[in-house]
């Protein structure tokens, strides 16, 4: 089970990002637990300022935008 966090104040880009990750995981058959983090202290705690940011198993893998399908697949496959 992979722990995925989407960091962002709840703007449209963050929603889209969470949606992309869930649908790619489903397609790949990878079990994930996805959580949307909108608390500023927690977002900055990860050292991230540009949202949406993505954290997979405690590691920041992406910041500042909607990720590409290829990138998401790569993070989920690792």
């Amino acid at each position: 089970m992979k722990e995925v966090k989407v960091l962002g104040a709840g703007c449209k880009n963050c929603e889209t990002t969470a949606h992309i990750i869930s649908s790619r995981a489903e397609k790949m058959g990878v079990a994930i637990h996805i959580e949307k983090v909108s608390d500023m202290a927690e977002i900055l705690g990860f050292g991230v300022m540009s949202t949406p940011g993505i954290v997979v198993d405690g590691q920041v893998v992406h910041t500042g935008g909607i990720p590409s399908f290829d990138d998401v697949d790569e993070w989920l496959a690792e």
């Binding site: 703007c11 880009n13 500023m40 977002i43 900055l44 300022m49 540009s50 949202t51 500042g64 935008g65």
Partner: peptide
């Protein structure tokens, strides 16, 4: 470049 929804974390991060 940053989207306006990043202004808040950016502001806090700079002051921090």
């Amino acid at each position: 470049p940053f989207c306006s929804c990043s202004s808040v974390p950016l502001f806090i991060g700079f002051l921090e």
